[in-house]
Amino acid sequence: MSLELHGTVHRGDFQRHVDVTADNGEVVAIVGANGSGKSTVIHTIAGLAALADGSLIVNDTPWDVPANNQWVSPEQRGCGVVFQDVRLFPHLNAVQNVMFGLRSGGVKRNDALERAMETLSEVDAHAFALRTPASLSGGERQRVALARALVMKPRVLLLDEPFSAVDERSHADFLQLLPRIVRETGAIALMVTHDHSDVSAIASRVVGL
């Protein structure tokens, strides 16, 4: 049970061959210079960009194999994504943002609310559950975004520089929290980062681009 990505990722004029493998329950760090395609890898795995060739196979399911015309839509992949530019929904407050994925999956309002609040407190964000993204600081937004990804209990967790704006104390907390959640849920976590201490702290494998 694992994630295997071997092929050419593609976005606009950018193209490059990548090999990424990850096992369940581990955190894999993706490092590389600006423009080396780290975010494109995240988008490709999430299903927001398609491979030019090669294959993306997750837990034995072919998510994206151009040669066989196999494709799984992003909404069916069940990834949890924290985007580099965060992308909270501006018209929803923090807890509504976290609830969004659950509600889309058909979870009842009250259950979704309960789970969203739980997850928000896990990332220490319950204090501003009712504020809109516009009124939050960059670090606070990243916490909400992290909760929004974690609340789905995703099989694949994709984190694109998720801690770039959080303060140091929370950063340390997250470095504890993340491996624990990944271990507990047996998820596959891929994290793009520039921070070498992150890599050494939690990554069990490093992919250089």
Partner: peptide
Amino acid sequence: MEIIAPDKRKIAVRRGI
């Protein structure tokens, strides 16, 4: 939905009901 795909590739999207 619009997926960023290479020019020649056609993606057969299976949609829910």
